[in-house]
Structure formats: structure tokens, C-alpha cells
Design a protein around this nucleic acid. Structure first.
Lengths: 244, 244
DNA sequence: GGTCTTATCCATGTATACATCCCTCTGTTC
DNA sequence: GAACAGAGGGATGTATACATGGATAAGACC
């Protein structure tokens, strides 16, 4: 959706503000002033307040004690915990899905995504269709959310994934990465298959532990980026939210 | 805090609306209209919008697709899942706390709460100080949240506990309950002790599984209430949010 | 009689004027 | 020189008038 064509001013303000925050145009911890933003976005304070309120729901802003909003800031430790949380919640969803049972009909689209994901891998380790993998990976994880048939669990998992660096596709390499980075994609895909098998076999504990380990790939990739120069970490989605 | 003395109209509206929702004055799924609420609360639409936005953050309201808010509604299955979620998140916090280590100084106030909780139990099974137990139990669980030293995990756990029926003290009996109900309090307290021991011994897996099992007591008590007549379920906090 | 169109109403969206509160800076007094 | 008081400015809080858009009902035409 083109952000300039959003139906209401509040929606447009929401899209623009979210983009600015994620792109790091505001420093983590920085306070946002209604009047200044209203002028910058060329709307009145009312839709700005509405947008900021929604961003607080998303977890990108925090309400300040004396009123107003500040950009939420994250340390590297927070990023690690957010990834851990996502893994725990995905693990819970797939465990519960396995325990309660998922019929083949509901599992079919997930299996189709697995087949599509396989097609991202070519003859050699270097030959990977990164953009397609990233898209299909996101689809796979989205499909997982609903498998437990629990709106409560799905909702909180979606919430956990909404932080840009906690998204399942946050650390998918963009190409020309070290060999080990590419190999991790093949490992991830084998975990995808094992996960679906465990759900189908109603092996809840296995499904849960695979999901948690799967999220650890993201943490590993984060650690790799941390070992690079400063420019490396800047490739992390939402790196502008980092402080320290 | 007296709700009539809140600093701003928005805060007062928030307190009053939250109370009305939890007490079931609005049916689950019912749409809330700004103008009607503004008149009922004797403020303008602006603070009402502000309050509703915060209630949406809390999870008591949902934003409707075409704008506006509806009271979030829960089925019994949702209540079960919310309790499960709380157990999973508490489990994660205590596991991570155990893995990362908690020094004695940080654990001391938790141990003090354990000692205080013991004092709630008298000579006989029937002799339990319910109000005090409920208060101290809430304190114990609040203290757990911070043990992992993770703001991210603590925040999401607090969020999960904010649904009235998912709170750790939601199903603490109020007195004159069947013997089995009272016994469950003693079991819960023994789990409290085992939990703290596991954290101190850095036994993450044990701590996690105890926390999950501990949450199951709430589910058991819910099932007990479901087996009673209709009046039984009405003693569940937030029963007004239930549909079906 | 059915369907399409139009008018009206009601709810939220938006802008804006004004209120209020807090913080800061300055000036005066002891 | 220090401390308190008052003034001023800037931020959010609030009320309200008006805009907009969707749903619904009524009426007219086929």
C-alpha cells in the first residue's frame, strides 16, 4: 500500500512514523512531540496522537510517565531476548498444535510451502534465491501461527514477531554471504520439515524443541553480525532502535 | 486510587471503563460508541478515545475493522489458552533466570515471600488465610517476573497476567471451599518452594516445568468451577468477558 | 415486485481553540 | 549568596465544530 494513499491521515501518519522509527530516524529513547510531528507530517495533532497510540500498542513507542511518547530503545540483550521469546511462543504454538492434533487438510498448505521453499535451493551452496526464500519463510512462519487453533496464542506470537529484529526472516542473508551463512538456510529448511513432521505425528515435545532451536539460528546470525564491523550490524532490521 | 480523583479525565475514564468491562457491564463483542460513553462518563470524546486506546493495548478492547472498538470476548477455550500462555511465559522467565543465574541477594525477597506464605496455613486444612494468601501469591509471582533480568520477558509476562482470569491469583478460593480446593493451595506453595530451589540450583528445565505445572492448578480450578452451577463460573474474575 | 439510486443519519476522523500543568528562569528578599 | 516566589513558555489535556464516509431505508423506475 502506498503510504501517501492511506485512507485516513492517522493511517498515513502511522505508516510514515513506523517507517521513520524502524529506519532509525529517531534515536532510541528520544521523545516525540506531537506538535513537531504534526507539522512534519502536515496533519493536526489528533491523527498524530492516534498513530502514536497504535505504535505504543505495537511496542515501538512507550508512553512516558508524564504523558507523551518516547521511542522504545533496545539493547543487544533485548534483541536476544526478543528472539528467545519468539522461539518460545512458536514452540508453544506448535506443541499445542501437535497435542491437540492438526488434520491433513489444515497441514496441506504448510507442506506446500515446504515444497516451494525447497525450490529456492540450487545445485551449489552459493545458489540460493534469497528474496524468494525470505518471502516463503515468512509465509511458513505465518502459517504456523494458526495451527494450534488458538486465537490467544496466535495473537501473542504475531505480536512477538512484530519487532523487526524478532521476525523469522529478520536475519535471512541478502546474498554474497559467507558459505556458513548460506548453509544455515539449508539447516533451517530441514528444521521446517522436522517441525511439520513432529506436528503431524503429534510429537509435541519434539515440535517445541525444534521451534526453539530454529529461533536460535537468528541469534547465531545476530552474533555473526556483531562480530563484523559496525556496518554489519546496520544490516539488522530495526538497527536504528538499538542503543549502547 | 480513587477513580474519581484521577488526575486527568482520560485516566478516570480508563479506570471506570476497565471496571465496567471486567464486571461484565458490557457484553463480550459489544461495540462501544464514543458519544454514548462520553455522555455516560460526563467527559468529551477525546479522553474516551484515549482510554479506549489504552484498553486496546491491555487487550480488553479490540479495534474494529471499520474503526471504533468492541469489547474483546473470550470463550472458555480462550481462558484455558490464556492460562497456558501465562504458564509458558512464567516458565520461560524462571528457566532463563536459572540459566543466567540469580544471586542470593536478588533471591532473598522471594524467599521472604515464601516464608510469609507459609504463615497463611494454620493447623488444619480448613484453616487458611485466603485474602493474605492471595495477596502474597500475587507478590510472589510479581517478584518472579524480574528474576531473569529481562525487560522484554518481564513485560510480556505482565501483559499475559493482565487478563483478569489469567492472573496467578485469579482462582484462589475465597473460603468455605471444598477440601480439595484448599489442599491445592498447599500444593501450590510446595511448587513455589521447588521453583525457587530450582532457580537457585540453576536447574532451568526443572524450573520451567514446575512453573507450567503450577499454572495448571488454575486450569484445574477453572474446570472445577465449570462443573458447578452457573453461579460457580460467575466467581471467575472477568467472567463478564465470556461468551457462549 | 424487485432493484437501483439517492438521501439521510450516525459514527468516527480531523482541525483547532483553549485549559492546564509542569518546568525553568529570573528577580527579589532575607 | 541562597532560597523562594512569580512569571512565562512549552508541552499535553480537553472540548467542540465540522468533515467524511458507510450503512440503511425509502422512493422511483423498470
Amino acid at each position: 500500500m502506498d503510504k501517501t494513499s492511506a485512507k485516513t491521515h492517522a493511517k498515513r501518519a502511522l505508516l510514515e512514523l513506523r517507517e521513520k522509527i524502524i529506519n532509525g530516524e529517531f534515536a532510541g529513547g528520544q521523545r516525540l512531540y506531537e506538535v513537531a510531528l504534526a507539522e512534519a507530517l502536515d496533519v493536526s495533532r489528533t491523527p498524530v496522537r492516534e498513530a502514536m497510540s497504535r505504535l505504543a500498542e505495537e511496542g515501538l513507542l512507550e508512553r512516558a510517565s508524564g504523558g507523551g511518547f518516547v521511542v522504545r530503545s533496545f539493547t543487544v540483550a533485548d534483541v536476544i531476548d526478543a528472539i528467545e521469546l519468539r522461539g518460545v511462543l512458536e514452540g508453544t504454538v506448535v506443541r499445542v498444535a501437535a497435542e491437540r492434533g492438526v488434520d491433513d487438510k489444515a497441514l496441506a498448505p504448510v507442506r506446500q510451502t515446504l515444497i516451494d521453499l525447497d525450490k529456492c535451493f540450487g545445485e551449489t551452496v552459493e545458489d540460493v534465491d534469497f528474496p524468494l526464500y525470505s518471502e516463503l519463510n515468512a509465509r511458513f512462519h505465518d502459517q504456523l501461527s494458526g495451527l494450534a487453533g488458538s486465537a490467544i496464542l496466535a495473537r501473542e506470537l504475531e505480536r512477538a514477531k512484530s519487532l523487526p529484529f524478532a521476525s523469522p526472516s529478520a536475519f535471512v542473508p541478502s546474498g554474497n554471504e559467507p558459505r556458513a551463512f548460506n548453509v544455515s538456510l539449508a539447516i533451517a529448511q530441514s528444521q521446517h520439515r522436522a517441525l511439520v513432521d513432529a506436528i503431524a505425528a503429534r510429537e509435541g515435545a519434539r515440535a517445541e524443541s525444534i521451534a526453539r532451536e530454529h529461533a536460535r539460528i537468528a541469534r547465531g546470525n545476530l552474533n555473526y553480525l556483531l562480530g563484523q564491523d559496525a556496518a554489519g550490524l546496520e544490516r539488522m532490521p530495526g538497527h536504528g532502535l538499538l542503543v549502547d
